[in-house]
Design a protein around this nucleic acid. Structure first.
Lengths: 172, 172
DNA sequence: TATCGACATGTCAAGAGTGGAAGGTAGAGT
DNA sequence: ACTCTACCTTCCACTCTTGACATGTCGATA
């Protein structure tokens, strides 16, 4: 149900069309809350039906620009303050670790190596992104920065873990 | 679909009923791949239909014990070796960070504090679990240990990050 | 012997997420 | 004038996930 609020959140700063939001998801939110086109358009319609957003402008090519309403902003705040974030995470990467015993030690090590490499790549990407952005004191920057820092710490942790884990697999 | 393979993985060591597997999910796999009862029973039926598992014994109270077939084990191995883990993660906790700008700095700090506390609790739980288990050299132990280590590193990272993040929010 | 808690499975509705097809317009460049 | 690309939305079919309800049995114990 977070998709709903993610859309509201993106509409806080400025009105946007489904297409704009789709791009926003593909770029900034891709690593945190991926969403597909079908999902976004559908959810926007529902949000508009419920009065949390309104069509503020119709553009060329059937473009509909949505603007957040006061109700919508209130709902976003309510969500942030009153509801607990869902902490159920699913990790395919980690699930597989439980079953590495059915493979040979070499195959298990290969798997862990591959995870280490992948984490290293992600980490490098995020680091480059961090360096490329000019951070100022705007709210968006502060919180964007905090989120990016999370990503960097997370990928670093994953890499270190995978490299350590590799050494734990007996070398038979 | 990882649930399918999670079930196959759990059946490697010994036959089990839906009920047994449900408990296994609630305990060991809960943090990695949560699943509900409806999902598990449904999936077991499908797996049996496809010959990846068979009903090896019928017990009291309609209990059906499933055993992994050779086909099932082969499929598990194929999944581990040939398919890439899906890395799309959704984090409600992090999503909210992007939108903390609509709250007051105090509210934002409260949110981050609360995440730090929560991470600390999880970390303490995992540490206690680690201490309570007698680890030996069995495969299951080795990989269980590796997974648990991931959890400990992850929660520690989250706590440190949230505490750091808290200091980044301007104190207006 | 009655009953209660743990054991055990099945089903259903609704929501969330995936992937793709289909349909169409505006504008920029050749 | 033409075509191509980017823009923009809607709809559909499917799978996955959640939560709840329904149904019943075994075994211990009061």
């Amino acid at each position: 149900m977070s998709l709903r609020h993610a859309l509201l959140g993106l509409l806080v700063d400025h009105p946007a069309s489904g297409y704009d939001l789709l791009k926003a998801f593909d770029t900034s939110l891709a690593n945190v809350w991926p969403a597909t086109q079908s999902q976004i358009y559908g959810e926007l319609t529902k949000l508009a039906d419920n009065g949390l957003i309104v069509v503020s402008e119709q553009g060329p090519r059937g473009r509909k620009e949505y603007t957040l309403t006061d109700t919508g902003l209130a709902e976003l705040r309510r969500w942030l303050i009153e509801t607990e974030p869902q902490r159920t995470t699913r990790s395919d990467v980690l699930l597989r670790v439980f079953f590495l015993g059915v493979l040979t030690p070499q195959q298990a090590r290969d798997y862990l190596d591959s995870q280490a490499v992948h984490a290293a790549e992600l980490h490098a990407n995020l680091k480059a992104l961090d360096a490329a952005i000019e951070w100022d004191d705007e709210d968006l920057s502060v919180y964007g920065r905090i989120a990016l820092e999370y990503g960097q710490r997370f990928t670093a942790m994953q890499q270190e873990w995978a490299e350590w884990a590799r050494t734990q697999v007996r070398s038979t």
